[in-house]
């Protein structure tokens, strides 16, 4: 399949993973078998890495918070950052981990939502004690306005009149 069609499939799935292969095939005018085959191969390549529900946890009733941590580290000779990264991302508490290009820190760690106590505990007893970590700076997310391209602040309400010519 050409790159353009492949990207179209990805764009649709990224927005709505619940679309069936039949629906994708109809919407893009690509044969359903081709769509199936392409999705399968993108899954095999780990280009599509999963299908998740997008949840606004702030609406679920809990007292958990999100935290983002900036980590400064000392890279290891011959290993670069990869081995340090592994020591961090293997923790189930870590939701995302990015190596950053510039600035005064190296890694951005985003933690799964947890209580303040759990976060403090994780940072001090797990992250800060990793040998190569020189410093940590923890930020608490106060309000999420937008995530995965969806605005969380605005409702879904249709502002149009129900029938217009």
């Amino acid at each position: 399949m050409n790159i353009k069609d492949r990207n179209k499939i990805l764009a649709l799935l990224e927005k709505d993973a619940k679309l069936t292969t039949k629906e994708i095939s109809v919407m893009l005018a690509i044969g359903e078998d081709d769509v199936k085959k392409e999705i399968k191969s993108m899954e095999d390549e780990h280009l599509i890495c999963g299908y998740h529900a997008f949840i606004n946890w702030d609406k679920a009733e809990d007292d958990k918070i999100s935290a983002l941590i900036e980590l400064k580290v000392t890279p290891q000779r011959g290993m670069g950052y990869d081995s340090i990264a592994k020591k961090i991302y293997e923790y189930p508490e870590v939701e995302s981990l990015y190596l950053m290009s510039a600035g005064d820190y190296d890694f951005t760690v985003i933690l799964k939502k947890a209580t303040m106590r759990e976060i403090a505990n994780f940072v001090t007893t797990k992250l800060a004690v990793i040998e190569e970590v020189r410093s940590t700076s923890t930020h608490i997310v106060m309000t999420k306005y937008k995530e995965f391209g969806v605005s969380l602040a605005d409702g879904k309400k249709d502002k149009r009149m129900a029938i217009t010519p």
């Binding site: 249709d158 149009r160 009149m161 129900a162 029938i163 217009t164 010519p165």
Partner: peptide
């Protein structure tokens, strides 16, 4: 469309495919 418009506004949970403007 006037008449239908009046009925539509009385009914909750209507899916409107009667809108002549972009969403």
């Amino acid at each position: 469309i006037r008449k239908l418009f009046d009925i539509v506004n009385e009914i909750p949970n209507v899916i409107s495919l009667g809108i002549g403007e972009p969403d």
